[in-house]
């Protein structure tokens, strides 16, 4: 008699591709990086891996460039996340308010154009927009007789802001979509009831919309922090961490250590510490999310 396959076991077959993907492309690399961080792995100096314990981590915490890159990363992430969520919500509210379907779809499509462009192309495009000789912006300033120097990537004071603005432009449409979905999950009957009670638009937004969106805010913030923390493409193409180290973020520093210096052990330690920082921040946000149910 053939054994029957139980109904619930069939589910494991369906989720096996995802498990294979997660394990091979996420979990195994993380374990491997953590493992390598306790070894000296420098093919240009010696063959193989030499166990050195916590030496790489001690080096990380004594490395001034680690702190510079971490500081830049925090500024980059904080600025990006703040505006991603704020502008994304603003755009979602605008789109959600539109009643004419065709116009709504056209507006949404136009707003979504940035996410259709690959990050490298975005970086090159904005590099030219910021350039003093090749951008249209100085032409506008000249036409308006404004004596403004337009070279945001040339100076340490403005380079990180310029890269952050580029990231905001590129990724905000994602969050507009997320917020739009969140807004559309709020039952319209609540709004109808509030209108009957005489609530105006501001009151509806403050007492109905915002509380309903709080849980989504924490989730989106957590998601955005994780994504932006290891963002590499824009900075690498636009500035390579310069001028000086004003745009050197953790991702570019790790890349330089791994692929320019071939110092895989140290790069792994940097990555592990960066992961720890990111995990701590995300855990706090997830805790807050749980607290709010």
């Amino acid at each position: 008699m053939k054994p029957k396959i139980k109904g619930q076991n069939v589910g494991y077959i369906f989720i096996s591709p995802l498990i294979i993907y997660l394990f091979s492309l996420s979990i195994y690399p993380m374990i491997r990086v953590l493992y390598m961080s306790f070894f000296s792995v420098q093919p240009t100096l010696h063959a193989g891996e030499i166990f050195i314990g916590f030496e790489n981590y001690i080096k990380v915490f004594n490395d001034p460039l680690f702190y510079i890159s971490l500081q830049n990363t925090i500024i980059f992430v904080a600025g990006s996340v703040f505006f991603h969520l704020l502008l994304g919500l603003f755009l979602a509210l605008l789109i959600n308010k539109l009643t004419h379907n065709l116009f709504k779809n056209v507006c949404r499509t136009i707003i979504l154009i940035p996410i259709a462009i690959t990050p490298v192309a975005v970086a090159w495009m904005w590099k030219m927009i910021y350039h003093p000789a090749f951008s249209f912006v100085p032409l506008i300033f000249n036409a308006l007789n404004l004596d403004i120097t337009w070279a945001l990537l040339a100076y340490p004071e403005t380079a990180l802001t310029a890269v952050t603005i580029t990231n905001i432009w590129h990724a905000t449409p994602y969050y507009m979509l997320y917020w739009l979905a969140a807004l559309q999950s709020i039952s319209p009957e609540i709004y109808e009831a509030s209108e009957v009670d005489g609530a105006n638009m501001q009151q509806r937004f403050r007492y109905i919309t915002l509380p309903q969106l709080k849980i989504f805010f924490i989730f989106f913030a957590c998601w955005d922090i994780i994504n932006t923390f290891m963002y590499w493409d824009l900075v690498w193409v636009m500035t390579r961490g310069g001028p000086g180290y004003s745009t050197e973020i953790l991702a570019t520093y790790i890349y330089k250590q791994a692929f320019q210096a071939l110092n895989f052990g140290y790069a792994s330690a940097l990555g592990s510490v960066g992961f720890l920082v990111m995990a701590t921040v995300s855990s706090v946000l997830i805790y807050m999310m749980r607290e709010r149910g």
Binding site: Y130, P132, A133, F134, T149, A151, A154, P243
Partner: peptide, 16 residues
């Protein structure tokens, strides 16, 4: 020299 020199890589100088 163009004052915003740190905005120029080889490609930009070539075009300029």
């Amino acid at each position: 020299v163009p004052p915003e020199v740190t905005a120029y890589g080889d490609n930009e100088i070539k075009d300029a």
